[in-house]
């Protein structure tokens, strides 16, 4: 039980994490023995060349995929032991996702998009609407509640996505290239939003391949061929 990986105070701990994709005859080891522990309140940028395993790592951290080897501890829970419903529940309660392509539901209004996690949490319509309004306000879109995503700019859409990711008040935000589809100025605004959230105590893990973007994070982790190449910044929490 008292495994070496879980002895420290990490909110996210990968212990000998292996993810193997079976591709015909040969196997692809997208993660090849990753050991890492992210502390509560940290802000990490995961970097690395294409194909190095960044997205795979995010899918694992986001409880969207399972390891083929090793162990993933999230909020002191061994994720590998959870069934599909429990994984969903875990995402719903502990995680917020921000995607490169925003991933808003096009036919729903801004308000409905932000309310989505609350709907699955079983909140009633009135409370959800209040919370959605607050969040929209906090990301500077208080006057866009009844707009559809298609009526918004890229930056505005990503703000909606941030608001949605915050709706369930998660401890951990996972952002996969959150500025990939935005111009630099707009991207910087989104990152400032993330920095502010991190200062409020959220743990943030962000994938990016731009050094400029990675500089907003407190720590940086470089991947290569499914393993951690090096770490920089506030790295005391990682081993």
């Amino acid at each position: 039980m008292n495994h070496s990986g879980s002895s420290n105070n990490g909110i996210i701990i990968l212990d000998q994490a292996v993810k193997t994709y079976v591709m015909g005859a040969q196997d692809v080891k997208a993660l090849n023995g990753v050991n890492v522990s992210f502390k509560r309140g940290s802000f990490w940028a995961i970097m690395g060349p294409s194909g190095s395993g960044k997205s795979t790592m995010m899918n694992i951290l986001g409880c969207l995929d399972r390891l083929t080897g090793g162990r993933y501890m999230l909020e002191e829970q061994d994720v590998g032991t959870l069934d599909d419903d429990a994984l969903s529940e875990f995402r719903l309660r502990h995680l917020g996702f921000i995607f490169q392509s925003f991933n808003l539901i096009p036919q729903l209004t801004v308000q409905r998009n932000i309310e989505l996690p609350l709907y699955y949490l079983g909140w009633d319509a009135q409370r959800s609407a209040e919370r959605a309004r607050e969040l929209a306000h906090s990301v500077g879109l208080g006057d866009r509640l009844n707009h559809r995503p298609t009526e918004l700019s890229g930056g505005q859409m990503q703000r909606v996505a941030v608001a949605r990711a915050l709706a369930n008040d998660p401890q951990i935000l996972l952002a996969d290239e959150p500025t990939g589809n935005l111009d630099t100025a707009t991207g910087d605004q989104i990152l400032e939003l993330l920095v502010a959230l991190n200062q409020q105590g959220k743990t943030i893990i962000m994938v990016t391949h731009e050094d400029h973007i990675a500089q907003f994070a407190k720590s940086r982790l470089h991947m290569r061929d499914g393993v951690i190449e090096r770490m920089e910044g506030e790295t005391d929490a990682a081993r």
Partner: peptide, 16 residues
Amino acid sequence: TREIGIRRAIGAKRKQ
């Protein structure tokens, strides 16, 4: 498909 993926990622269970 994408909408379903978004809902699932957010935390919707299969039965939902």
